[in-house]
Nucleic acid binder design. Sequence first.
DNA 1: CGTTGTGAAGGAGTTCACAGCA
DNA 2: TGCTGTGAACTCCTTCACAACG
Lengths: 218, 218
Amino acid sequence: MRDGRIPAATVARLPVYLQVLLEAAEAGVEVLASEDLARAAGYNAAKVRKDLSYLGTHGTRGVGYDVDALARELSRALGLLEDRPVVLVGVGNLGRALASYDGFRRRGFHLAALLDAAPSVIDQDVAGYRVRAVEELESVVVEHDISLAVLAIPAAQAQPMVDRLVAAGVRAILSFVPTHLAVPDDVTLRRVDLATELQILSFYEQVVVDAPTTTTTT
Amino acid sequence: MRDGRIPAATVARLPVYLQVLLEAAEAGVEVLASEDLARAAGYNAAKVRKDLSYLGTHGTRGVGYDVDALARELSRALGLLEDRPVVLVGVGNLGRALASYDGFRRRGFHLAALLDAAPSVIDQDVAGYRVRAVEELESVVVEHDISLAVLAIPAAQAQPMVDRLVAAGVRAILSFVPTHLAVPDDVTLRRVDLATELQILSFYEQVVVDAPTTTTTT
DNA sequence: CGTTGTGAAGGAGTTCACAGCA
DNA sequence: TGCTGTGAACTCCTTCACAACG
């Protein structure tokens, strides 16, 4: 256990550990050794122990980690002790799917609002939510004290929308837009590009063998 | 330019470069310096040059990189010279969105088949495709010579399905399943977990400042 | 005794800085 | 002159290996 900053690579794995722990708890398991955790997460034991050591977590030597305690610890570290409100901007195909995706709900988030610019979809019902006009963005963010946004709009409109989200007070953005988007240093942006992922796979498929069986990183 | 293996981190950036180049070509730009490419991609010039050097690509000193030539070079490296067939397994909310997502089509892939296990969706029309029974998996893979699969099914059924895909001859899998899935060494699996991405953002949002403005890696 | 927590070694990826060339 | 291509330095991450300890 150290106290400086937690390495980015470690942060990216914490949700995976949490997931494994919640499944173990579900199954009635009370203690897991780093070895077990590693197997279930797809890493190795040394990495698991080092990662957890950054949290200052203490397992029990000769025994392992208490499943419930560690899950709580991870939830706390990730800021998931209570449900976080998220605003979803863009209700096209992908946006609709994201709105219907219950993984968000089940893993600590809820959609506080769905926004779109197209008059044709405004006021429409999507996955049980009423789509609101992007004009309401600023008021929605303030009203629900939102700091997380999911962006699923066309590339052409994306940068201005990012600027607007940032100005409104959003601190972190999950972008599905296939373009580089600039944000200030104090705002975090993660980009998920589905076509890019397939293209990476395409590379390894033809090169045959040897791809690092991956996950998202950094 | 070297000739060994291309670093995983570099491979993950190649699609981004390609995207930038195609947009530049679209805009009529014929030459880009590493500096320009870097700005558009969100990296820095040294990284761009080193990445490209692994391809054995030669830019022109004092000038930059020929946009068309480099785009072709990258397409070749990524195995995108011709459209690649992909099989999509799982036509739930996410699967439907993926089927409707035109980014795949526009960036070198086409869905050769949509499969699902639920009798209620079989033969249904989704995004213009007729959903087929998973039973047809093996024949579809052989018939279309498919090596890429996209997996969007519940975690519980995922590992057996992965084994089946691999046995059928699939060499690379893009998984949206929020669980670790095992594949043999000669098969590549990339995992995209949307809730995980949000949880990572949640961490940085609360920690305030300092997150490495990211993209998918490895 | 078994498993954690961690220094230290090793490996991967990034950035620097400059020589080399169009 | 201007920008590429790249060795070398550096930083970040992973893995090893073992002492510490319940």
